[in-house]
């Protein structure tokens, strides 16, 4: 009985409404589907990026740092260090007009016991964002004490890739900014001082044309000039030029366009090309050790400790 009643109700509904419901056009369906897909993508993107475990750790200019809760203080310090380095080397320049985002999943060193269970110790996440963060996106997984180095590496890599082709070819690799500056310059100085090619020795002897050749800035007139300096040394020249150029030096270097590297370096440093090369050469060779293997301070210290040990021997030799 009830079944017959239900069938009748459905039949009445269909008969009553069929002519009043217009069929939807294909275009409307397609637009609706596209809108729904776009909204879904945005939502998924938002969930993926705006990690709910992350909280803001600090802001500085156009940079923002977020991290998981236990890493917040650490992340705030990282932001300060990173912002300082970025300001010194790149000014306000960004690798992409739409900004960037560098995410690092972190873990701490594990004790002897924890190494056996294969779990991460104090896992966390640190996320550095520039502007809206919708431009370049980099993700890494690293021990917490290496996060700063990773941030610098990733950022420098992005900045390197934003350079015109000519300058990228000249540099070959991104500048190794994650290295401690004294060490980096010391390695560069050794590369320069131990160069054995004719032009390399000529550069040490103050021949500017040889320096320009070994830095791959100009061609050599010599028929057998020998080898050129490694990319590490060219990166040192770039960083020297940026230091000399001060504010916006990187922007001037990058915006010089597809010109010769020497012109871009001159624009960055605001120096004449030859003056820049001479200043750099003087600076890098000035890092050579000025003292021999022995200094007066070490001499006094060793003699002092020698005397102290003798006094100790006199004191501890009470055999009876």
């Amino acid at each position: 009985m009830s079944r017959a009643r239900a069938c009748a109700a459905i039949a009445a509904l269909l008969l009553g409404t069929a002519h009043r419901v217009p069929a939807q056009s294909v275009t409307a369906w397609r637009d609706s589907t596209l809108a729904l897909t776009a909204r879904y993508s945005a939502l998924r993107d938002s969930i993926g990026r705006a990690d709910s475990t992350l909280a803001e750790a600090g802001r500085r200019g156009d940079l923002a740092m977020a991290s998981t809760l236990p890493q917040r203080q650490f992340a705030a310090r990282l932001l300060e260090d990173f912002a300082e380095l970025r300001q010194r080397r790149f000014g306000e320049a960004l690798p992409d007009d739409r900004g960037f985002r560098i995410s690092v999943r972190t873990f701490e060193s594990r004790s002897v016991f924890e190494r056996f269970d294969g779990r991460d110790r104090n896992p966390g996440k640190v996320q550095l964002t520039g502007l809206s963060g919708s431009g370049r996106d980099v993700e890494r997984y690293e021990r917490v004490d290496r996060v700063y180095s990773i941030l610098v590496q990733a950022y420098t890599e992005m900045m390197f890739e934003s350079l015109p082709v000519t300058l990228r070819k000249w540099l070959e690799f991104r500048p190794p900014l994650e290295m401690e500056e004294t060490n980096r310059r010391y390695v560069a100085m050794y590369s320069v001082a131990t160069g054995v090619g004719r032009a390399e020795r000529g550069c040490i002897d103050s021949h500017i044309a040889d320096c320009a050749y070994v830095l791959r800035l100009r061609e050599s007139t010599d028929s057998a000039p020998g080898g050129t300096y490694p990319p590490f040394v060219r990166a040192d020249l770039l960083l020297f030029a940026l230091d000399r150029g001060g504010d916006s030096a990187w922007i001037r270097f990058r915006n010089a366009g597809d010109v010769l590297p020497i012109e871009a370096l001159a624009a960055a440093s605001r120096l004449e090309p030859d003056s820049l090369i001479l200043a750099w050469r003087r600076d890098i060779l000035g890092l050579r050790p000025t003292e021999g293997v022995l200094d007066g301070r070490g001499l006094l210290l060793a003699l002092g400790w020698g005397a102290l040990f003798l006094a100790g021997a006199l004191g501890v030799s009470k055999w009876v």
């Binding site: 020795r201 293997v293 070490g298 003699l303 003798l310």
Partner: peptide
């Protein structure tokens, strides 16, 4: 080649100092 320096005397003096310190320590 020019640009390289040699330190035979300073090296021997440094060796002597290191020997004095280590001899003193082992002697004690």
């Amino acid at each position: 080649p020019a640009g390289l320096r040699i330190f035979p005397h300073a090296l021997a003096a440094k060796f002597a100092l290191a020997l004095i310190v280590l001899f003193g320590f082992a002697f004690a």
